[in-house]
């Protein structure tokens, strides 16, 4: 099968690799770019562990070929924190016990970050809809919902100065 060289921008840095068309985006991120923060659970679209953002929208990286993302921009969990420290959402997960084993966490964060960024108002129902495609076997979800509400509150306080 023909290989081709593709380039994907991940967290503002360009990564190029020579890949087979069947290379999944999740494998490109983990193996070719070496960014192992993105986790892989089921590899058929049901668990959400592999969620990343493609041009700002949450997508499942196990349900996309790397070559489909050629020339596009991806953001992974490594792109959330900056020099100042953890993203408020990450900090809130820590403070509100939004994780236990942490396997599902990168997927939750990447699904939730666009939700808190874009939603007009944060509601429990809205949060639950945003994470309906993510499975967590540890927390029972309530502490995740609490974490998002905490993060939203902190971010609002920050904005208000």
């Amino acid at each position: 099968m023909t290989h081709s060289t593709i380039t994907i921008e991940i967290n503002d840095r360009a990564y190029s690799a020579d890949v087979e068309p069947r290379r999944l985006l999740s494998d490109f991120i983990r193996e070719d770019a070496g960014l192992t923060g993105t986790h892989v659970g089921c590899e058929h679209g049901v668990c959400g562990a592999c969620t990343v953002q493609l041009d700002g929208a949450p997508v499942r990286s196990c349900l996309m070929l790397a070559i489909q993302a050629d020339g596009r921009s991806v953001r992974t969990v490594e792109g959330l924190a900056d020099d100042a420290g953890l993203h408020p959402l990450q900090q809130a997960f820590l403070d509100a016990h939004g994780l236990q084993c942490g396997y599902c966490t990168p997927g939750f964060l990447m699904s939730l970050e666009p939700y808190i960024r874009d939603a007009d108002a944060i509601s429990e129902q809205g949060i639950r809809e945003a994470i309906s495609g993510n499975i967590c076997r540890c927390t029972g979800y309530q502490s995740i919902v609490d974490a998002v509400q905490l993060a939203a509150e902190k971010m609002r306080l920050q904005e208000d100065g």
Binding site: G45, G48, T51, L54, A57, P58, V59, R60, L63, M64, S111, Y115, E129, A130, S132, G133
Partner: peptide, 9 residues
Amino acid sequence: VAHPQIRSV
């Protein structure tokens, strides 16, 4: 239909 992560694609 499915979840936000699937409807976006």
